[in-house]
Write a protein that binds this DNA or RNA. Structure first.
Ligand SMILES: [Mn+2]
Ligand SMILES: [Mn+2]
Ligand SMILES: [Zn+2]
Ligand SMILES: [Zn+2]
Lengths: 157, 157
DNA sequence: TTGTTATTGAAAACCATTTCCATTAATAGA
DNA sequence: TCTATTAATGGAAATGGTTTTCAATAACAA
């Protein structure tokens, strides 16, 4: 491992620098957690995961960094109705792992599904195009979520 | 106007009483505001509208009532990312006025659209059926929202 | 009319997120 | 490599939408 320039090698280096942002240890750590984690982490989840290794990175920085990443389109900010924002690494609507969400309103469990995703995405793209033209919007994102009760929650009525 | 039983005549009387809820002045007032208002009111918006006529109905009651109405499926609770929940009268996915949302991330303006709604709803119903079976969910709601910049916000870049 | 108990209002608590501000560190330029 | 600039940071405090608490009130079954 080369001395000094340990950071700045990731594929996101350019993305950051190109937008005038500095590449800091905190930003890298957060991005790394999101990139390799399971999904839907809250700011505090991320803080917890980072803290052991980087005890000097504060929760405030997590929030600020998540805002930056979100505005750069590198992560998605999600709301599943449990009172805190959740984040997941973005793969872009054309990306291989693009998915939508199925949320249990009983236990807050979230299922990432990719079934039907092709049909959905195709229809969404048409809709997006039509809406963009009709309402003069520059659309750059969408959300589809289904809400219901999972088997367990449905049973315990 | 008949004496005494001024309340309890609305079509929602049965819905309430059937679920064991009491029909109170506050609940009626809130439902009325939602039913005849333009859209996407926050709890405080509703409070403001009700207060002149019913200065003794508190914000706490608004929140509590919105929860009840929401759980009964009579209204939808929405999140447009502006830090407060917003509510709209429900017409049900089969209802005549079912619509989805187009949100400007610049100025928070929200457009209700019904374009493409038929194709969307059809696909959603298939998806819903498929997902429900595969993941053993009892799905009873969905959200579709497009995010982007409206003409004005896109221009002032 | 009366008793039961769901509902209410006001104030306080809650808690995720944001703001403040003095300090630190990433980076461009010498 | 050293230095100056200023973006980024962390901790504490503030913010603000929503929830909780609890004694008082009112809906409604009998
Ligand atoms: Mn996901
Ligand atoms: Mn709407
Ligand atoms: Zn569940
Ligand atoms: Zn706008």
């Amino acid at each position: 491992m080369p001395r000094g320039e340990c950071r700045g090698q990731g594929w996101w280096h350019g993305k950051f620098r190109g937008c005038g942002y500095r590449l800091t240890l905190g930003r890298e750590a957060i991005l790394e957690v999101l990139a390799k984690s399971e999904k839907h982490l809250s700011a505090e989840d991320i803080y917890m995961k980072i803290h052991p290794r980087h005890p000097n990175i504060g929760l405030t920085t997590i929030y600020r960094t998540l805002d930056v990443l979100s505005s750069l389109g590198m992560i998605y900010k999600l709301d599943f109705g449990d009172g805190r924002a959740r984040y997941e690494f973005a793969e872009g609507p054309k990306g291989a792992h693009h998915h939508h969400h199925l949320v249990c309103t009983g236990c807050n469990r979230v299922v990432d599904y990719t079934d039907f995703i092709d049909e959905e995405v195709e229809l969404l793209q048409q809709t997006e195009k039509g809406l963009g033209k009709k309402y003069n919007f520059k659309i750059n994102n969408h959300i589809i979520q289904f809400y219901g009760l999972c088997e367990k929650c449905s049973g315990k009525k």
